[in-house]
Amino acid sequence: MSIWMYIDEVVQCLQGQQLLSSIVPLSSAPEVLPTNHRDFRHIIGQDHAKYALEVAAAGEHNVLMVGPTRCGKSLLAETFPMILPRLSHEAQLEVISLYQLAGEPKNDSSPPFRHPHHSASAVALIAEGAQPKPGEVSLAHRGVLFLDEMEEFTNKTFDMLR
């Protein structure tokens, strides 16, 4: 069904002429993959780290990866959302609501992945202030908040995250 048929059906429903019958449920909407899409299954090596991430994904655990520069921590973290379970319908609605409050698009049912830069202010991460809107922590709800180069974040930021 084309987008115009959906729009026509919604207009007819708003005019009281028919009921909505063929709207695609949120969970079956097509996935929109980013152009720089990386997949967890294409990572070669790192078997222990991959197993730890699989256990964390299955049990909804937090993960802290520590290691030398260029050992693959960022690649593992960026592909981690690929192995997370799909969001339930209720969880999708929660995530979409947060993104709408923040004025950002979220068009798929995959868990969110947020990667704020270490120079981001504590307010941008937590969302306090005169006119608060969801910060990075809230936008990562039910997904991944990836804090790369943790030593570069300020102490104030860590205090607010606590």
Results as ranks from 00 to 15, higher is better:
48 H>P: 10
107 N>P: 02
15 Q>W: 08
55 V>P: 02
18 Q>M: 06
58 A>M: 08
90 E>S: 15
110 S>I: 11
14 L>I: 04
146 F>A: 04
113 F>K: 00
100 Q>K: 10
17 Q>C: 09
100 Q>L: 03
141 H>P: 07
14 L>V: 00
59 G>H: 01
143 G>C: 02
113 F>P: 02
54 E>R: 13
33 L>C: 05
51 Y>S: 15
121 S>K: 01
115 H>E: 14
77 A>Q: 10
142 R>P: 01
90 E>L: 08
51 Y>G: 09
159 D>F: 14
60 E>N: 15
148 D>M: 06
60 E>S: 15
155 N>W: 15
49 A>R: 01
100 Q>Y: 02
124 A>L: 05
112 P>V: 07
36 N>L: 10
97 S>F: 03
77 A>G: 03
57 A>L: 07
90 E>C: 12
126 I>A: 13
79 T>N: 00
37 H>C: 05
122 A>Q: 05
80 F>W: 03
141 H>Q: 06
23 I>C: 02
75 L>Y: 02
73 K>Y: 02
5 M>V: 11
93 L>R: 09
137 V>W: 07
58 A>I: 09
52 A>Y: 05
2 S>K: 14
41 R>Y: 06
108 D>L: 06
64 L>C: 04
56 A>L: 10
118 H>Q: 09
83 I>S: 05
142 R>D: 01
38 R>Q: 10
139 L>N: 00
128 E>P: 03
63 V>C: 12
71 C>T: 12
29 A>V: 10
140 A>R: 01
27 S>Y: 06
67 G>L: 10
122 A>R: 04
58 A>H: 06
159 D>H: 12
24 V>L: 15
161 L>K: 12
47 D>M: 07
